[in-house]
């Protein structure tokens, strides 16, 4: 169960690359685990480390301003490709609590919201401004307020971001989505009583 999300301020890391797919976020060879723990070490592994496993100094996550940053600002269409929730676990394992982009791949966004990683969708102008800020004032802080659905920039401008109202409520109140579904057992049973089973995998 994710912790309820409170407003927070943080420095941010900018990764101005479009269509970052979940294979980049965490390469498949790190998916042989049966746990969700410890995946922060594999985050962006093949961008972060060279062929000998040494950190690449030119990659943003290896630079001082990335340490302790809880917000990632990425190019358009973040999280495309594989459904691996490991991508969210890796981002959170590294310490990220929000990703900002102009839009997110559908499965990634769902996975993020299930774990308390905020997918913050901003307009193209704000997006550009954040990338400029990353170059001009890399130590800038952003403020994220889920209750208000606001991202506050260092100049004080508040940008409202859309978010699925149900997920928002769950994240603010610590409501567990699985618990919510389990509480619907009667309705699920009523559905099953009136809809014949389509295939029985135990039958053949």
């Amino acid at each position: 169960m994710p912790e309820p999300i409170r407003p927070f301020s943080s420095r941010f890391v900018a990764l101005p690359i479009e269509n970052i797919d979940t294979d980049q976020i965490i390469p498949a060879r790190f998916l042989k685990t049966t746990s969700a723990e410890g995946l922060g070490a594999a985050l962006f592994y093949d961008w972060r480390y060279d062929a000998n496993g040494a950190p690449r100094s030119d990659f943003i996550l290896n630079q001082p301003q990335a340490q302790g940053a809880r917000i990632l600002v990425a190019g358009h269409n973040f999280g495309a490709g594989s459904s691996r929730e490991h991508a969210v676990w890796a981002l959170m394992g590294f310490g990220f609590r929000a990703v900002i982009s102009t839009y997110f791949a559908d499965i990634f966004r769902n996975n993020a919201l299930k774990n308390g990683l905020l997918p913050i969708q901003v307009d193209a102008e704000t997006h550009r401004q954040l990338f400029s800020l990353a170059q001009e004032a890399p130590d800038s802080q952003l403020y994220v307020d889920l209750e208000a659905q606001q991202l506050v920039l260092p100049d004080g401008r508040a940008v409202t971001f859309p978010i699925d109202p149900f997920a928002r409520r769950c994240l603010l109140d610590g409501v567990d989505q699985l618990g919510y579904l389990l509480n619907m057992a009667d309705r699920i049973a009523a559905y099953e009583a009136t809809h014949p089973q389509r295939v029985n995998t135990l039958s053949a």
Binding site: A36, S83, E85, H86, N111, K114, N115, L178
Partner: peptide, 8 residues
């Protein structure tokens, strides 16, 4: 779907 949804 993701793994949380697999559990669901």
């Amino acid at each position: 779907i993701g793994t949380s949804e697999v559990a669901h």
